[in-house]
Amino acid sequence: MSRDAAATRRRILDAAVEEFSEHGIAGARVDRIAAASDSNKALIYKYYGSKDRLFDAVFDTIVVQTMNNVPIDADDLPGYAGRLWDWYRERPELLRLGDWDALERGGAGMAAQAPRAATAEKIQAIAEGQRRGSVNPMLPAETLLRLVLAICRTSPAAESAQSHREAVVAAVRQIVAVSDNTDTQVSPR
């Protein structure tokens, strides 16, 4: 791909992130994406084939960016949760894109290659932390991951953002804390 084509694709994806996060998949308009990216509709369809496949490309891109910028650390899941919460606060469009995917497509974006690989990597990291004894093995690794991710999606209500972030970290610390009572352990997956 030439440099101009790569730059054009980047502009299209950047414009699509804004359009999809603001309007959802059904409400997004390719002509607005074309105008915002200084390209044209024909080029968008040439590169991506359809609006739905453009959304898939956007979704894959944000998952890869999140994995690269906020890598999981199973030995410090509370710290990971704090960093992920910060990432989401700095980029609220990421949460909206996930919501639109869940609402309009039943979470199909999470079934795509990049999100599946990212999820599997996180589950594996947590399972390894459970085997090493740094993460409570009471819950299956996948369940624990889902809980941590759900906590990271929360927004401050009445308290300050900093207080809420501290609550996110404390909640994850409680969930993953290794206790002396191992009678109720569930086998990590």
Rank of each mutant, 00 (worst) to 15 (best):
M1N: 03
M1V: 05
S2E: 11
S2I: 07
R3M: 10
R3C: 04
A6T: 11
A6F: 09
A6L: 15
T8H: 07
R11N: 09
R11C: 07
R11M: 08
D14C: 12
D14E: 14
V17A: 09
E18C: 06
E22L: 09
G24R: 15
A26F: 02
A26W: 04
G27A: 15
V30L: 12
I33L: 07
I33P: 00
A34Y: 01
A35Q: 13
A36V: 08
D38Q: 14
A42I: 05
A42K: 11
A42M: 06
Y45T: 03
K46M: 04
Y47V: 06
S50P: 08
A57I: 03
A57C: 04
V58Q: 01
F59T: 02
F59C: 05
F59R: 03
I62G: 00
I62T: 04
Q65E: 13
Q65W: 13
M67L: 13
M67A: 13
N69H: 11
N69E: 15
P71Y: 12
A74F: 08
L77I: 00
P78A: 14
G79A: 10
G79W: 05
G82Q: 04
L84M: 12
D86Y: 03
W87E: 04
W87D: 02
Y88I: 05
Y88C: 02
Y88P: 00
R89G: 00
R89A: 05
E90L: 12
R91P: 00
L95E: 03
L95C: 02
R96W: 00
L97E: 00
L103R: 05
E104G: 04
R105T: 06
G106A: 07
G106C: 02
G107E: 02
M110T: 05
M110Y: 15
A111E: 12
Q113F: 03
Q113Y: 06
A114I: 01
R116G: 00
R116C: 01
A118Y: 06
T119G: 09
E121L: 11
E121K: 15
E121F: 07
I123K: 02
Q124I: 01
A125P: 00
A125S: 01
I126C: 05
R131K: 08
P137R: 04
M138C: 11
L139H: 08
P140C: 11
P140E: 10
A141P: 14
E142R: 06
E142S: 08
L145W: 14
L147V: 15
L149Q: 03
I151W: 04
R153D: 13
R153I: 07
R153V: 11
R153C: 12
A158W: 11
A158N: 10
A158R: 12
E159W: 03
S160A: 14
S160F: 11
A161G: 14
Q162C: 09
S163K: 15
H164Q: 12
R165A: 08
E166N: 10
E166R: 10
V168L: 11
V169Y: 04
A170D: 10
V172F: 00
R173N: 06
R173L: 06
Q174W: 02
V176D: 02
V176K: 01
V176Q: 01
V178N: 06
D180S: 07
N181P: 00
D183T: 15
T184A: 12
Q185T: 14
S187Q: 14
R189G: 13
R189Y: 12
